[in-house]
Nucleic acid binder design. Structure first.
Lengths: 228, 228
DNA sequence: CGTTCTGTTGAATACCTTCAATTCGCGTGG
DNA sequence: CCACGCGAATTGAAGGTATTCAACAGAACG
């Protein structure tokens, strides 16, 4: 196994010397999770955090009656479950593998020790947490100040920008898209249908073609999707 | 001026040597903001962050049509505006003094330099950002998975716990309470009225007496506030 | 003592959800 | 290769929670 090689290209560990990577590779524990497997649950005690090597993981909250809000979808090379490593002791949310997944686990103490010796990993982690905070402000803004069509438009534009194409492909199903946007699949269906009628987009299964990006941007920024 | 003395007791700077506090006090810039003053706006470029010495500051987002969502209310000794110091360059939200306020400003570069020399401040900052992330998960959970009565109940219980009394006193007005909970003042009024009718609480101006904490906890956890 | 901001209450409305009924899509197995 | 079955997605109708708009009451402030 070459954990060491995987570690080299993880942004969190950028700037570390080979010797430190070596050290990390020794303390890391490798885990596999099949699709659907719960990795940790809200309230679980934690003594370390994960870095995702392959697959995907959703971080989410669940309401008493089972409704689910996705906070974040973790992609390869991102760390997750890092909050209790630095504050509190328990995970504030749940994590589930939404694909077959391989992850490394790093014990809290080892990482902190490493940080004490070399600040670069702490600075990388600060950058990462700051970025998460930024994403959360957008999520809160969406949930509180925008309606579902606006959030959906913003999401599609985000994917379009990330993938650098106007012909986007949803890599999550609509139930999870709904959960990510703080709504339900039915609502997503209805709004996509309306957007098609208004000629903003064209839908073919999981593929969506953005036709009128200008109008979508207007929407995402706060305009109304009025339809009669 | 004794900036140095103020710095000693700020949690973020816990664990630093006097020499380092001394250093910090030299690079800090002291600012005063009158109540109502905008300290920074979303999108502004930032080259440092603030630590609040006295007064209070709200961090908030605004929608196109002027509705406001408070993300955080900063109390004395807490840092704020720290996200762009570590990721991105711009503030993700707005900051406004809601009382007459005194704050210190620390240039990004100086703090990072300090972190490189001594990891304790980086670890303190990691703890702080992690705590913010935790708070955000609760905010998102509230906005997405709970109804207003549930959020309001949770808020009152939080204050009650923090102040260690069942006779809480709102230290913000209802407009801002509404903005913090992701709703509007009218809705707060109506729900408080309902809670009084159901004998959960008793209201006298800004004072609220929690009568049936058990029921409030049930509510906060997700039960319904059914009323006919 | 008036002005202004904050808070309350009512009626109408809007957006989203819930519930239920189909339909679609796709993998599996005959 | 087709048929079946099951989950995902769509669509309609009804209902609920919160917002909007408007009018008014109350408190704070100069």
């Amino acid at each position: 196994m070459d954990i060491k090689n995987s570690l080299k290209y993880i942004p969190l560990f950028k700037g570390l010397f080979d010797r430190q990577i070596e050290e990390l590779s020794k303390i890391a524990m490798r885990y596999s999770f099949l699709k659907g497997k719960i990795i940790f649950s809200e309230g679980d005690e934690a003594d370390g955090f994960y870095v995702l090597l392959s697959g995907r993981v959703k971080i989410f909250k669940v309401s008493r009656d089972g409704k689910e809000q996705i906070l974040h979808i973790i992609e390869a090379q991102e760390p997750f479950g890092e909050v209790p490593a630095f504050a509190g002791k328990r995970f504030p949310a749940n994590a589930e593998a939404i694909e077959d997944t391989i992850a490394l686990f790093f014990p809290r103490e080892s990482i902190i020790q490493l940080m004490k010796n070399d600040p670069s990993i702490a600075l990388n982690m600060l950058a990462l947490l700051s970025q998460r905070l930024r994403q959360f402000t957008d999520l809160v803004e969406g949930l509180s100040l925008k309606e579902v069509p606006q959030r959906l438009a913003a999401y599609m534009l985000l994917i379009s920008e990330r993938e650098k194409t106007d012909n986007i492909e949803l890599n999550i199903n609509k139930k999870q898209l709904a959960s990510l946007l703080g709504t339900i699949p039915e609502t997503i269906s209805r709004i996509l249908a309306k957007m098609v009628v208004k000629n903003l987009i064209d839908v073919n299964g999981k593929r969506i073609k953005l036709i009128d990006k200008r109008a979508l941007e207007e929407l995402a920024y706060g305009a109304k999707l009025d339809i009669q």
